Simulated assay, not measured.
Amino acid sequence: MTPDPIARFLSAVAMLCLHMAASAAPCVEPPADPANTYDAPHTYAKLAPRYPAIRIASAALPVDVGRVADLTYAQLGTRCLKLDLYLPLAARADGGMPVVVLVHGGGWRAGFRAEFAPMAVRLAQHGYAAVAISYRLSGEAPYPAAIHDTRAAVRWVRDNAGLYHLNPQRIALAGGSAGGQIASLAGVTGQLDRFDPGAGEGAVSSAVQAIVNIDGLSDFTAEAALKYEDDPAKQPSAAGAWFGGRYAEKTALWAEASPIRYVRPGMPPILFIASAQPRYSVGREQMAARMTQAGVANRTLVLPDTPHSFWLFDPWLQTTVDAMVAFLNQQVPQR
Protein backbone atom coordinates (compact mmCIF):
# COMPACT_ATOMS: atom_id res chain seq x y z
CA MET A 1 0.00 0.00 0.00
CA THR A 2 1.37 3.43 -0.90
CA PRO A 3 1.43 6.37 1.52
CA ASP A 4 -1.56 8.05 -0.14
CA PRO A 5 -3.99 5.16 0.50
CA ILE A 6 -2.65 4.89 4.04
CA ALA A 7 -3.29 8.56 4.65
CA ARG A 8 -6.77 8.29 3.14
CA PHE A 9 -7.57 5.29 5.33
CA LEU A 10 -6.45 6.98 8.55
CA SER A 11 -8.28 10.17 7.61
CA ALA A 12 -11.49 8.24 6.99
CA VAL A 13 -11.15 6.48 10.33
CA ALA A 14 -10.53 9.78 12.12
CA MET A 15 -13.61 11.37 10.55
CA LEU A 16 -15.74 8.38 11.50
CA CYS A 17 -14.49 8.54 15.09
CA LEU A 18 -15.36 12.24 15.27
CA HIS A 19 -18.83 11.52 13.92
CA MET A 20 -19.37 8.72 16.43
CA ALA A 21 -18.14 10.89 19.29
CA ALA A 22 -20.45 13.73 18.27
CA SER A 23 -23.51 11.48 17.97
CA ALA A 24 -22.98 9.46 21.17
CA ALA A 25 -24.07 10.50 24.64
CA PRO A 26 -21.24 12.14 26.62
CA CYS A 27 -19.10 9.73 28.57
CA VAL A 28 -15.81 9.86 30.43
CA GLU A 29 -13.02 7.72 31.79
CA PRO A 30 -12.20 8.02 35.50
CA PRO A 31 -9.37 10.39 36.43
CA ALA A 32 -5.88 9.00 36.75
CA ASP A 33 -5.20 7.27 40.06
CA PRO A 34 -1.77 8.26 41.45
CA ALA A 35 -1.65 4.94 43.31
CA ASN A 36 -1.83 3.05 40.00
CA THR A 37 1.86 2.52 39.29
CA TYR A 38 1.83 -0.79 37.45
CA ASP A 39 3.60 0.33 34.30
CA ALA A 40 6.90 -0.30 32.52
CA PRO A 41 8.94 2.53 34.12
CA HIS A 42 8.03 1.61 37.70
CA THR A 43 8.52 -2.09 37.02
CA TYR A 44 11.86 -1.41 35.33
CA ALA A 45 13.11 0.41 38.43
CA LYS A 46 12.39 -2.71 40.47
CA LEU A 47 13.87 -5.21 38.01
CA ALA A 48 16.90 -3.43 36.56
CA PRO A 49 19.23 -4.13 39.53
CA ARG A 50 18.80 -7.87 39.00
CA TYR A 51 18.43 -7.75 35.20
CA PRO A 52 20.69 -4.88 34.08
CA ALA A 53 20.56 -5.85 30.40
CA ILE A 54 16.81 -5.34 30.02
CA ARG A 55 15.26 -2.29 28.39
CA ILE A 56 11.71 -1.03 28.22
CA ALA A 57 10.14 -2.20 24.97
CA SER A 58 9.36 0.62 22.57
CA ALA A 59 5.79 1.55 21.67
CA ALA A 60 6.86 3.81 18.79
CA LEU A 61 4.86 3.30 15.62
CA PRO A 62 6.87 2.05 12.63
CA VAL A 63 5.89 3.16 9.14
CA ASP A 64 3.96 -0.06 8.47
CA VAL A 65 1.63 0.15 11.51
CA GLY A 66 -1.29 2.51 12.14
CA ARG A 67 -2.96 3.29 15.44
CA VAL A 68 -6.50 4.44 16.13
CA ALA A 69 -6.64 5.52 19.77
CA ASP A 70 -9.32 6.10 22.39
CA LEU A 71 -12.17 4.27 20.70
CA THR A 72 -15.14 3.65 23.00
CA TYR A 73 -16.11 -0.01 22.89
CA ALA A 74 -18.78 0.13 25.60
CA GLN A 75 -20.60 2.76 27.59
CA LEU A 76 -22.06 2.19 31.06
CA GLY A 77 -24.08 5.27 31.92
CA THR A 78 -21.54 8.06 31.62
CA ARG A 79 -18.59 5.66 31.94
CA CYS A 80 -16.57 5.02 28.78
CA LEU A 81 -14.60 1.83 28.25
CA LYS A 82 -11.91 2.48 25.66
CA LEU A 83 -9.43 0.67 23.47
CA ASP A 84 -6.58 1.39 21.10
CA LEU A 85 -6.49 -0.38 17.76
CA TYR A 86 -3.20 -1.20 16.01
CA LEU A 87 -3.41 -2.09 12.34
CA PRO A 88 -1.00 -3.39 9.72
CA LEU A 89 -1.01 -0.91 6.86
CA ALA A 90 -0.46 -3.47 4.12
CA ALA A 91 -3.34 -3.85 1.68
CA ARG A 92 -5.58 -6.89 2.16
CA ALA A 93 -7.85 -8.27 -0.52
CA ASP A 94 -9.12 -11.28 1.46
CA GLY A 95 -11.52 -11.74 4.34
CA GLY A 96 -9.67 -9.43 6.70
CA MET A 97 -6.99 -9.54 9.36
CA PRO A 98 -7.07 -11.85 12.36
CA VAL A 99 -7.32 -9.97 15.66
CA VAL A 100 -5.68 -10.27 19.07
CA VAL A 101 -7.49 -8.54 21.95
CA LEU A 102 -4.95 -7.67 24.67
CA VAL A 103 -5.86 -7.45 28.38
CA HIS A 104 -3.39 -5.69 30.68
CA GLY A 105 -2.26 -6.88 34.08
CA GLY A 106 -2.00 -5.20 37.47
CA GLY A 107 -3.49 -7.51 40.10
CA TRP A 108 -7.06 -6.75 38.93
CA ARG A 109 -6.73 -3.33 40.59
CA ALA A 110 -4.08 -1.47 38.59
CA GLY A 111 -2.43 -1.25 35.17
CA PHE A 112 -3.00 0.49 31.86
CA ARG A 113 -3.83 -0.65 28.35
CA ALA A 114 -0.67 1.16 27.16
CA GLU A 115 1.24 -1.67 28.86
CA PHE A 116 0.50 -3.75 25.77
CA ALA A 117 1.30 -1.10 23.14
CA PRO A 118 4.77 -2.52 22.33
CA MET A 119 3.33 -6.01 21.87
CA ALA A 120 0.46 -4.64 19.78
CA VAL A 121 2.90 -2.90 17.45
CA ARG A 122 4.91 -6.07 16.90
CA LEU A 123 1.84 -8.20 16.35
CA ALA A 124 0.66 -5.70 13.73
CA GLN A 125 4.01 -6.02 11.98
CA HIS A 126 3.25 -9.74 11.71
CA GLY A 127 -0.11 -9.08 10.05
CA TYR A 128 -2.37 -9.20 13.12
CA ALA A 129 -4.66 -6.39 14.16
CA ALA A 130 -4.16 -5.82 17.89
CA VAL A 131 -6.65 -4.27 20.29
CA ALA A 132 -5.41 -3.06 23.69
CA ILE A 133 -8.32 -2.55 26.07
CA SER A 134 -9.02 -0.84 29.36
CA TYR A 135 -11.50 -2.46 31.74
CA ARG A 136 -13.02 -1.71 35.12
CA LEU A 137 -10.53 -2.37 37.90
CA SER A 138 -11.49 -3.87 41.25
CA GLY A 139 -11.61 -0.48 42.99
CA GLU A 140 -14.38 0.55 40.61
CA ALA A 141 -16.23 -2.71 40.02
CA PRO A 142 -15.54 -6.16 41.50
CA TYR A 143 -15.50 -9.52 39.77
CA PRO A 144 -16.89 -10.36 37.25
CA ALA A 145 -16.99 -6.85 35.73
CA ALA A 146 -13.59 -7.26 34.04
CA ILE A 147 -14.83 -10.45 32.37
CA HIS A 148 -17.96 -8.67 31.16
CA ASP A 149 -15.84 -5.82 29.77
CA THR A 150 -13.47 -8.15 27.96
CA ARG A 151 -16.34 -10.01 26.33
CA ALA A 152 -17.83 -6.65 25.31
CA ALA A 153 -14.54 -5.72 23.64
CA VAL A 154 -14.62 -8.93 21.60
CA ARG A 155 -18.15 -8.10 20.51
CA TRP A 156 -17.01 -4.60 19.49
CA VAL A 157 -14.35 -6.17 17.28
CA ARG A 158 -16.99 -8.27 15.52
CA ASP A 159 -19.39 -5.35 15.21
CA ASN A 160 -16.68 -3.19 13.59
CA ALA A 161 -14.88 -5.86 11.58
CA GLY A 162 -16.00 -4.49 8.24
CA LEU A 163 -14.89 -0.94 9.01
CA TYR A 164 -11.33 -1.93 9.91
CA HIS A 165 -10.90 -4.92 7.58
CA LEU A 166 -10.87 -7.40 10.46
CA ASN A 167 -11.79 -11.07 10.28
CA PRO A 168 -14.64 -11.71 12.76
CA GLN A 169 -14.02 -15.45 12.65
CA ARG A 170 -10.38 -15.20 13.72
CA ILE A 171 -10.20 -13.51 17.12
CA ALA A 172 -7.83 -14.39 19.95
CA LEU A 173 -7.72 -13.15 23.54
CA ALA A 174 -4.36 -12.58 25.22
CA GLY A 175 -3.25 -11.01 28.48
CA GLY A 176 -0.49 -10.84 31.05
CA SER A 177 -0.64 -11.56 34.80
CA ALA A 178 -4.16 -10.66 35.99
CA GLY A 179 -4.89 -9.91 32.35
CA GLY A 180 -3.83 -13.44 31.45
CA GLN A 181 -6.33 -14.86 33.92
CA ILE A 182 -9.04 -12.49 32.67
CA ALA A 183 -8.37 -13.32 29.02
CA SER A 184 -8.30 -17.02 29.82
CA LEU A 185 -11.55 -16.97 31.79
CA ALA A 186 -13.34 -14.78 29.25
CA GLY A 187 -12.15 -17.10 26.48
CA VAL A 188 -12.95 -20.48 28.04
CA THR A 189 -16.45 -19.33 29.03
CA GLY A 190 -17.37 -18.06 25.57
CA GLN A 191 -20.32 -20.44 25.42
CA LEU A 192 -21.73 -19.30 28.77
CA ASP A 193 -24.04 -16.29 28.66
CA ARG A 194 -23.83 -15.70 32.43
CA PHE A 195 -20.38 -14.19 31.93
CA ASP A 196 -21.68 -11.82 29.28
CA PRO A 197 -24.53 -9.38 30.03
CA GLY A 198 -24.57 -8.41 26.36
CA ALA A 199 -25.40 -11.93 25.21
CA GLY A 200 -28.86 -12.89 24.10
CA GLU A 201 -30.99 -13.56 21.10
CA GLY A 202 -29.62 -11.73 18.08
CA ALA A 203 -26.49 -10.52 19.88
CA VAL A 204 -23.12 -10.74 18.20
CA SER A 205 -21.03 -13.53 19.70
CA SER A 206 -18.20 -12.77 22.12
CA ALA A 207 -16.60 -16.21 21.74
CA VAL A 208 -12.98 -16.41 20.59
CA GLN A 209 -10.95 -18.91 18.60
CA ALA A 210 -7.73 -18.94 20.65
CA ILE A 211 -6.26 -17.75 23.96
CA VAL A 212 -2.79 -16.70 25.11
CA ASN A 213 -2.33 -16.71 28.88
CA ILE A 214 0.92 -14.98 29.87
CA ASP A 215 1.81 -15.70 33.50
CA GLY A 216 -1.80 -15.68 34.67
CA LEU A 217 -3.44 -17.96 37.24
CA SER A 218 -5.51 -20.91 36.08
CA ASP A 219 -6.71 -22.05 39.52
CA PHE A 220 -7.42 -19.67 42.40
CA THR A 221 -8.34 -22.57 44.71
CA ALA A 222 -5.05 -24.48 44.54
CA GLU A 223 -3.01 -24.48 47.73
CA ALA A 224 -0.08 -22.77 46.00
CA ALA A 225 -2.36 -19.94 44.82
CA LEU A 226 -4.07 -19.47 48.17
CA LYS A 227 -0.67 -19.10 49.86
CA TYR A 228 -0.26 -15.78 48.06
CA GLU A 229 -3.71 -14.74 46.89
CA ASP A 230 -5.36 -15.37 50.27
CA ASP A 231 -2.46 -14.24 52.45
CA PRO A 232 -3.99 -13.13 55.79
CA ALA A 233 -1.26 -10.52 56.16
CA LYS A 234 -2.77 -8.63 53.23
CA GLN A 235 -5.99 -6.83 54.08
CA PRO A 236 -7.17 -7.38 51.46
CA SER A 237 -5.04 -9.26 48.96
CA ALA A 238 -5.34 -8.29 45.30
CA ALA A 239 -7.61 -11.26 44.61
CA GLY A 240 -9.57 -10.68 47.80
CA ALA A 241 -10.26 -7.11 46.76
CA TRP A 242 -11.47 -8.30 43.35
CA PHE A 243 -13.76 -10.99 44.78
CA GLY A 244 -14.95 -8.84 47.66
CA GLY A 245 -13.77 -11.27 50.31
CA ARG A 246 -11.28 -13.93 51.28
CA TYR A 247 -11.48 -17.50 50.03
CA ALA A 248 -13.43 -18.71 53.06
CA GLU A 249 -15.95 -15.90 52.57
CA LYS A 250 -16.32 -16.09 48.77
CA THR A 251 -15.36 -19.69 48.03
CA ALA A 252 -17.80 -20.05 45.14
CA LEU A 253 -16.46 -16.96 43.36
CA TRP A 254 -12.81 -18.00 43.75
CA ALA A 255 -13.69 -21.35 42.17
CA GLU A 256 -15.91 -19.85 39.47
CA ALA A 257 -13.13 -17.51 38.33
CA SER A 258 -10.64 -20.36 37.86
CA PRO A 259 -10.24 -21.11 34.13
CA ILE A 260 -9.31 -24.73 34.89
CA ARG A 261 -12.96 -25.37 35.81
CA TYR A 262 -14.09 -24.95 32.20
CA VAL A 263 -11.91 -27.42 30.29
CA ARG A 264 -14.05 -29.23 27.73
CA PRO A 265 -13.79 -30.64 24.22
CA GLY A 266 -14.23 -27.87 21.65
CA MET A 267 -12.95 -25.08 23.89
CA PRO A 268 -10.44 -22.60 22.37
CA PRO A 269 -6.81 -23.75 22.25
CA ILE A 270 -4.44 -22.03 24.68
CA LEU A 271 -0.83 -20.98 24.57
CA PHE A 272 0.62 -20.63 28.06
CA ILE A 273 3.71 -18.42 28.33
CA ALA A 274 5.20 -18.42 31.80
CA SER A 275 7.97 -16.70 33.69
CA ALA A 276 10.40 -18.50 35.98
CA GLN A 277 8.17 -17.44 38.91
CA PRO A 278 5.72 -20.37 39.32
CA ARG A 279 3.39 -18.60 41.76
CA TYR A 280 1.93 -16.51 38.92
CA SER A 281 0.75 -19.42 36.79
CA VAL A 282 -0.59 -21.83 39.38
CA GLY A 283 -2.87 -24.43 37.81
CA ARG A 284 -1.24 -24.15 34.37
CA GLU A 285 0.22 -27.65 34.25
CA GLN A 286 -2.97 -29.26 35.52
CA MET A 287 -5.11 -27.30 33.06
CA ALA A 288 -2.84 -28.18 30.13
CA ALA A 289 -3.02 -31.87 31.09
CA ARG A 290 -6.83 -31.74 31.20
CA MET A 291 -6.92 -30.00 27.82
CA THR A 292 -4.71 -32.67 26.29
CA GLN A 293 -6.99 -35.35 27.72
CA ALA A 294 -9.99 -33.52 26.21
CA GLY A 295 -8.29 -33.35 22.82
CA VAL A 296 -7.80 -29.58 22.89
CA ALA A 297 -4.62 -28.07 21.44
CA ASN A 298 -2.33 -26.37 23.95
CA ARG A 299 1.27 -25.38 24.23
CA THR A 300 3.44 -24.17 27.11
CA LEU A 301 6.54 -22.00 26.90
CA VAL A 302 8.42 -21.29 30.13
CA LEU A 303 11.06 -18.58 29.78
CA PRO A 304 14.05 -19.35 32.03
CA ASP A 305 15.46 -16.79 34.46
CA THR A 306 12.65 -14.33 33.89
CA PRO A 307 10.74 -12.13 36.33
CA HIS A 308 7.03 -11.60 36.34
CA SER A 309 6.05 -8.84 33.85
CA PHE A 310 8.81 -9.94 31.46
CA TRP A 311 6.64 -9.04 28.45
CA LEU A 312 7.15 -5.34 29.12
CA PHE A 313 10.84 -5.57 28.30
CA ASP A 314 13.31 -6.54 25.64
CA PRO A 315 14.77 -9.02 24.97
CA TRP A 316 11.84 -11.08 26.32
CA LEU A 317 9.05 -9.31 24.44
CA GLN A 318 10.32 -10.46 21.06
CA THR A 319 10.53 -14.07 22.23
CA THR A 320 6.97 -13.76 23.53
CA VAL A 321 5.66 -12.28 20.28
CA ASP A 322 7.43 -14.91 18.18
CA ALA A 323 5.81 -17.68 20.23
CA MET A 324 2.40 -16.03 19.95
CA VAL A 325 2.66 -15.59 16.19
CA ALA A 326 3.73 -19.20 15.67
CA PHE A 327 0.78 -20.42 17.77
CA LEU A 328 -1.76 -18.05 16.24
CA ASN A 329 -0.64 -18.86 12.71
CA GLN A 330 -1.79 -22.40 13.46
CA GLN A 331 -4.97 -21.61 15.38
CA VAL A 332 -6.28 -18.40 13.71
CA PRO A 333 -4.28 -18.49 10.48
CA GLN A 334 -3.99 -15.56 8.12
CA ARG A 335 -5.33 -16.12 4.63
Rank of each mutant, 00 (worst) to 15 (best):
residue 181 Q to G: 15
residue 63 V to P: 14
residue 118 P to C: 10
residue 95 G to F: 08
residue 137 L to Y: 00
residue 83 L to Y: 00
residue 84 D to R: 09
residue 48 A to Q: 15
residue 331 Q to N: 12
residue 107 G to C: 01
residue 19 H to C: 10
residue 180 G to Y: 06
residue 95 G to T: 12
residue 66 G to P: 03
residue 158 R to H: 14
residue 125 Q to T: 11
residue 61 L to E: 04
residue 156 W to M: 02
residue 44 Y to N: 02
residue 321 V to R: 07
residue 81 L to R: 02
residue 158 R to N: 14
residue 315 P to W: 14
residue 135 Y to W: 09
residue 80 C to H: 07
residue 186 A to Y: 00
residue 139 G to R: 08
residue 122 R to E: 07
residue 323 A to T: 01
residue 192 L to C: 07
residue 256 E to G: 06
residue 213 N to P: 15
residue 101 V to Y: 10
residue 74 A to E: 01
residue 31 P to G: 11
residue 284 R to P: 11
residue 323 A to G: 01
residue 5 P to W: 08
residue 13 V to C: 10
residue 112 F to Y: 14
residue 9 F to S: 09
residue 240 G to I: 04
residue 26 P to A: 05
residue 81 L to A: 12
residue 84 D to E: 07
residue 64 D to L: 01
residue 154 V to F: 03
residue 73 Y to D: 00
residue 241 A to N: 15
residue 169 Q to N: 15
residue 206 S to E: 10
residue 35 A to N: 13
residue 234 K to R: 15
residue 170 R to M: 12
residue 110 A to V: 07
residue 163 L to K: 14
residue 258 S to Y: 02
residue 205 S to Y: 11
residue 248 A to R: 13
residue 137 L to A: 03
residue 28 V to I: 15
residue 253 L to P: 03
residue 132 A to G: 15
residue 194 R to S: 13
residue 122 R to P: 07
residue 135 Y to E: 03
residue 107 G to Q: 04
residue 105 G to V: 13
residue 299 R to E: 12
residue 17 C to G: 08
residue 124 A to L: 08
residue 98 P to Y: 01
residue 304 P to L: 04
residue 330 Q to N: 12
residue 175 G to A: 02
residue 131 V to W: 01
residue 141 A to F: 01
residue 190 G to K: 03
residue 108 W to K: 13
residue 194 R to A: 05
residue 202 G to I: 02
residue 214 I to N: 02
residue 233 A to F: 12
residue 76 L to Y: 14
residue 197 P to M: 13
residue 199 A to T: 12
residue 59 A to Y: 04
residue 123 L to V: 08
residue 239 A to T: 11
residue 48 A to V: 07
residue 191 Q to V: 14
residue 124 A to C: 09
residue 151 R to Q: 05
residue 303 L to Q: 02
residue 211 I to M: 03
residue 196 D to W: 06
residue 205 S to N: 06
residue 197 P to S: 14
residue 187 G to F: 00
residue 269 P to K: 09
residue 64 D to I: 04
residue 19 H to W: 08
residue 104 H to N: 08
residue 190 G to Y: 04
residue 40 A to S: 09
residue 158 R to E: 09
residue 296 V to F: 10
residue 114 A to P: 06
residue 92 R to E: 09
residue 298 N to S: 09
residue 96 G to C: 03
residue 156 W to D: 00
residue 210 A to D: 00
residue 27 C to Q: 13
residue 194 R to E: 10
residue 198 G to Q: 05
residue 247 Y to K: 11
residue 222 A to M: 06
residue 82 K to C: 10
residue 45 A to Q: 08
residue 162 G to W: 14
residue 164 Y to E: 06
residue 278 P to F: 14
residue 60 A to C: 14
residue 233 A to P: 15
residue 89 L to I: 07
residue 101 V to G: 11
residue 161 A to V: 03
residue 48 A to Y: 11
residue 264 R to T: 05
residue 325 V to F: 07
residue 177 S to T: 15
residue 162 G to P: 12
residue 141 A to S: 08
residue 179 G to M: 01
residue 227 K to I: 15
residue 96 G to H: 02
residue 228 Y to P: 03
residue 4 D to L: 05
residue 168 P to Y: 05
residue 107 G to A: 01
residue 191 Q to H: 13
residue 228 Y to R: 15
residue 105 G to R: 05
residue 98 P to A: 01
residue 262 Y to M: 12
residue 202 G to F: 10
residue 207 A to N: 15
residue 1 M to N: 02
residue 295 G to A: 15
residue 85 L to P: 03
residue 222 A to Q: 13
residue 54 I to Y: 06
residue 84 D to S: 03
residue 181 Q to D: 11
residue 226 L to A: 10
residue 217 L to N: 09
